[in-house]
């Protein structure tokens, strides 16, 4: 069953257990910088998944298992938010989370878009398609509050990319990453340097230039560019703060 490959197979570097194991090893190495409560919670989440045997991962229990993992991840952010002293380590952690979040949203959109383009009625995104996409991103109810019932599918894509209040939108994530960088500079006298400034400006102007139409090949190409900008931004941060220092 493919769910086992994605959940508990340690040969798959992207399986939930592989990723949680890596997260735990990272947490172990950074244990002196993170709250005890966070370390404890990662240990417990890891143990929950590590205890899943192939026999336990059945189609019948799949939803329950995935819900447990999802809830565990959300609880992780709650623990982090409510316990971490707001120091520079916290700033870097947030910075990483925001970039990762922006990136994940573009990938989710790209996969949905790809599926649509591969299907028969590729030309026009249907309402059911963007409905589904919004729900995948936990964005449906938020979107509903902002848009009337006659909203267009492109509005959904725009919401996920450009909304300034939805926590998983690319723009909000990126803006928050920017403000962490600003805090590093003002609170820790740690200026970003030229290379990072360039990457930041590029990412910023990319998000100001909305392509038309926000669907199909154009959307795919645009998401690709955003991802490249995010990678360049993250690389510039790594060069500035983590290599050689």
């Amino acid at each position: 069953m493919i769910a086992r490959w994605y959940l508990i197979d340690r040969d798959n570097p992207n399986s939930v257990i592989s990723v949680l194991t890596m997260a735990r090893e990272n947490a172990r190495a950074l244990r002196h910088l993170i709250p005890t409560e966070m370390w404890r919670h990662i240990n417990m989440l890891h143990a929950d998944v590590a205890n899943l045997t192939a026999r336990k991962v059945t189609l019948v229990r799949l939803n329950e298992i995935c819900e447990q993992v999802r809830l565990g991840c959300q609880a992780h952010f709650g623990v982090v938010d409510s316990t971490w002293y707001r120091d520079e380590a916290w700033l870097f952690h947030k910075l990483g989370c925001e970039i990762e979040r922006a990136d994940e949203t573009t990938r989710l959109m790209d996969i949905s878009n790809y599926k649509l383009m591969a299907s028969d009625n590729a030309l026009l995104p249907t309402k059911s398609w963007w409905n589904w996409l919004l729900r995948q991103a936990s964005a449906y109810q938020a979107f509903r509050r902002k848009h009337q019932i006659n909203a267009e599918p492109a509005d959904a894509a725009a919401f996920l990319l450009f909304d300034s209040d939805f926590p998983r939108s690319v723009r909000l994530s990126v803006l928050q990453a920017f403000s962490r960088l600003d805090e590093l500079e003002t609170d820790y006298q740690s200026a970003p340097g030229q290379k990072l400034l360039v990457a930041r400006t590029a990412l910023s102007s990319r998000l100001k230039n909305r392509p038309e139409p926000l669907a199909g090949e154009t959307l795919h190409a645009y998401l690709d560019e955003v991802q490249k900008d995010l990678i360049a931004f993250a690389d510039a941060i790594a060069d500035r703060y983590f290599d050689g220092g």
């Binding site: 172990r28 244990r31 005890t36 370390w39 404890r40 240990n43 417990m44 143990a47």
Partner: peptide
């Protein structure tokens, strides 16, 4: 103790 990672590895 295990959850808290009060362990030797």
């Amino acid at each position: 103790l295990y959850n808290l990672g009060i362990t030797f590895t």
